[in-house]
């Protein structure tokens, strides 16, 4: 079944043109009865910091709503799957930057390396995920991650009137982080932050399969100069940044 979808993608030119014309367009209209993650895919993100407005937080808001991420009102313990970081040059020269930071879904994720129960794991399509049923809350992954991508759920989350039923609520005492909206990807969709960025922001986030040479993100990664955060650590992150 996934092979079908893969070969559809492989038709290349025509569809790639379509993707370029309408980023965020759903390739598969209705979810199929059974789907499976494909080891042929590698999801990645390219963030154009030139398009990122310091005052815009639509990606953060969309993530909170989509993934039922609660706010406790305590900055030290609030959970952030995605956050906006402001960068100010230390020497005062050059412009300030603003950019979103989220889990980088590394090819060599240190969080997965240190997890004693394999609760943090790499899915076949390269996503770094947490099996919440298996996390013992030891927090070693939070020590190991250089991107501060992870949060522990310190308190019982406040009751909230509205929930996205497709994503579970929080369990106290486990560690969590961005999933690239895996539930949306499995239905052929895009992460909520990317969608919000193109709808409400300036469309600075591009998401797709870098194993597909014709995907918009593959093409753009070849055209523009981009970097990752802390490439010296050798983690090979899959969130790329343009303009820093």
């Amino acid at each position: 079944m996934t092979m079908d979808r893969r070969s559809v993608l492989g038709l290349g030119g025509m569809l790639a043109a379509g993707v370029l014309l309408a980023p965020g367009l759903r390739l598969v209209a209705a979810p199929e009865e059974a789907t499976e993650a494909s080891d042929k895919r590698r999801w990645a993100m390219l963030i154009d910091t030139n398009q990122c407005d310091p005052s815009c937080t639509s990606c953060m808001k969309a993530c909170r709503v989509e993934n039922n991420v609660p706010l406790f009102g305590d900055p030290k313990r609030d959970i952030h799957w995605i956050r906006k970081v402001e960068l100010r040059p230390k020497d005062g020269k050059g412009p300030d930057r603003s950019l979103p930071m989220l889990c980088n879904h590394c090819e060599n994720p240190p969080c997965v390396h240190v997890c004693p129960t394999q609760a943090s794991f790499i899915r076949k399509d390269g996503l770094v995920l947490i099996d919440m049923h298996r996390c013992i809350g030891c927090r070693y992954c939070m020590i190991a991650c250089p991107y501060k991508a992870r949060s522990l759920v310190y308190n019982e989350p406040p009751e909230s009137a509205s929930h996205n039923r497709k994503v579970p609520r929080r369990a106290m005492g486990v560690v969590e982080k961005c999933t690239f909206c895996v539930h949306r990807l499995d239905e052929g969709g895009q992460p909520a932050c990317v969608e919000a960025c193109s709808n409400e922001g300036k469309g600075g986030m591009l998401f797709g399969d870098v194993n597909d040479p014709n995907s918009a993100i593959s093409q753009k990664l070849h055209q523009v100069l981009s970097t990752t955060i802390r490439p010296d650590l050798g983690l090979k992150p899959r969130v790329h940044y343009q303009g820093i």
Binding site: E33, A34, E36, A37, K124, D125, D131, M132, R165, K166
Partner: peptide, 18 residues
């Protein structure tokens, strides 16, 4: 199904808890 879905990404929609 929970393990299959979380770890392998295998989703059988008619057998989902939802």
């Amino acid at each position: 199904n929970r393990s299959l879905t979380v770890r392998e990404g295998k989703r059988i929609r008619s057998e989902s808890l939802l």
